[in-house]
Design a protein around this nucleic acid. Structure first.
Lengths: 232, 232
DNA sequence: CGTAGATTTATTGTCGACAAACAAAATACA
DNA sequence: TGTATTTTGTTTGTCGACAATAAATCTACG
C-alpha cells in the first residue's frame, strides 16, 4: 500500500522522523480514527523497524497532543473535544488575524511567491472539487502566510491549529463533499493582494472574516451531522 | 547533590517524566547553559538509569524547543535568539492580554483561590528580595491565570513563553538583582481584582501594560548588559 | 612546518530481550 | 448462578549491547 522503505534503505537517524510523519499523516487524515489504540509492536512490524524509533515518534506526537499515552497501557489517538470546540475556533481566528497581520508587515518577495504558489494549488484543488486536496492546500496556504510573519511562536501555534482543523474538516468532508467554496478562492486572492499592499489593518480584518466564515461552515456541518444522528 | 532516587525506588513509567522535569528545570535555571552539550551516557550515569528514558525526555524537550538535536551529534541546550527577541515580546504581550481576558470571563471561585495563592507566593518572594523565587512565582502566577482562561491552545503557548521568559530573566537577574519591583506586586493585585470583577476590557488593558513593563525592564537589562560588554 | 589523508575514539541511533503492570480469562467458592 | 480470586496473556517500560557516524587524533608527505 504505502511506500515503506526497508530499514536498510533508510538513512540512519531518520527512523523516528519517518515514523512520525507517517503516523501524523494517518492521524490527520483519519486513517487512524480518534480513540483507536496504537500498538507499538504491530507498528514496528508494519514499518519493519525496532520499537525504539516508534516510541520516539509517539513521544513527539504526545507532546503535540495528537496522541494520548495511558501509563502502562496502549497510547491512543487523541479524541476531538467537541465540547470545547469554541476554544479552537477562538484561537484559530486570533492566529489567522495575527499571522496575516505580521505577514502584511514583514513579507519579502520570496514570501509572496511562495504564498501565491500555495494559492494556485488551492485554486486547482477547488476547481477539481477534490475535497481532501482542498483541505491540505488550504492548510499549506495559511501555513505559508504564518511563516512570512516570521514569529516562530505564533507560527507553531498556527501550525498546530491548522493540523487540528485539517482533522476536523476531514471528518465532515468525507460525508458532505457537496459544498462548493468558490468564494474561498476569492477571499484568498483578496488576502494575498492586501498582504502584498502591506495594508495591515485590512489584512487583519479580512483574516478575521475569513476565519469566521470557516468557523460558520464547520458549525453548520456539525449541526447538520447532529440532526442526522437524532433522526436515526 | 540533587536528590536522585535509585532506580528501584522510582515507580515504573515515571523514568522519562523524571528526567524530563530534572533537565527542564536545569535548562530554565541556566544550570545547563545555552549551547552546552547534553551527553546521554553521562546523564544516564548521573541519574542511574538507562539511556532509553533519557532519550525520551530529550525528544520531548526538543519538540518544545528547549534543546536542539544535531543528527548523529550531541544534543545541545537551545540558544536564546537575541536577534529575534521582539517576536518573543510580541507574543508574550498578546498572550498575557488574551489569557487574562479569558480568565476575567470564565474564572470560577476555585480559580480565584488558586490565583490568589500564587500571588501571595509572589509577594513573599518580592518581600524576601529573592530574585530567583520571584521569577518562578511570577511564572506560576501567570500560568494560573492562563489555566483559568480555559483555552488549552492559548495556555500551552503561554506556558512556553513563560518558560522562555524565565530563562531570559534568570540570565540577567543573577547579575543585576538590585532591582526592586514592588510595583509588580501592586500590578498583580490590580490584575486579580479586575479579573474577579469580570471587567474584561480593563483586564486586557492591565495585562497589556503589565507586559509592556516587563518588556521594558528586560530591554533595560539587556542594554545595560551591552554597555558593560562594550566597556570591557 | 603545514596540510591532506588515514585511523582512532567517542557518541549517537537502533536493536532484541526481559521484567513489570494491567486486562482478560479461568477457576473457586458461597 | 453470581462474585471474588487466581491465573494467564498481552503490551508497555527499561535495559545492555552493537552498528553507524562524525569528531578528534595521528601519520605521511609536500
Amino acid at each position: 500500500m504505502t511506500n515503506k522503505p526497508k530499514s536498510a534503505e533508510r538513512k540512519r537517524g531518520s527512523g523516528a522522523q519517518f515514523v512520525y510523519s507517517i503516523l501524523r499523516d494517518e492521524i490527520l487524515d483519519l486513517t487512524l480514527l480518534p480513540g483507536s489504540p496504537i500498538d507499538e509492536i504491530r507498528l514496528s512490524e508494519r514499518l519493519s523497524m525496532s520499537r525504539t524509533p516508534i516510541r520516539e515518534a509517539l513521544v513527539r506526537l504526545a507532546s503535540e497532543g495528537l496522541v494520548t499515552t495511558l501509563p502502562n497501557r496502549s497510547t491512543v489517538v487523541s479524541n476531538i473535544d467537541f465540547m470545547n470546540l469554541h476554544t479552537f475556533f477562538d484561537a484559530m481566528t486570533l492566529m489567522y488575524r495575527v499571522t496575516t497581520r505580521l505577514a502584511a508587515q514583514f513579507h519579502t518577495p520570496a514570501d509572496m511567491a511562495a504564498i501565491r504558489a500555495r494559492q494556485a494549488e488551492f485554486a486547482k484543488a477547488v476547481a477539481a472539487q477534490d475535497a481532501l486536496s482542498m483541505i491540505a492546500t488550504n492548510r499549506e496556504f495559511h501555513a505559508e502566510i504564518a511563516r512570512a510573519g516570521r514569529n516562530p511562536y505564533y507560527e507553531s501555534l498556527c501550525l498546530r491549529l491548522l493540523d487540528e482543523g485539517r482533522r476536523l474538516l476531514r471528518m465532515y468532508y468525507q460525508s458532505f463533499d457537496d459544498q462548493l467554496p468558490n468564494e474561498y478562492v476569492q477571499e484568498h486572492e483578496d488576502l494575498v493582494a492586501t498582504i502584498e499592499a502591506r495594508d495591515v489593518a485590512r489584512a487583519d480584518s479580512l483574516a478575521g472574516t475569513h476565519a469566521d466564515q470557516i468557523v460558520q461552515q464547520i458549525q453548520a456541518l456539525i449541526s447538520r451531522d447532529r440532526r442526522q444522528h437524532i433522526e436515526l
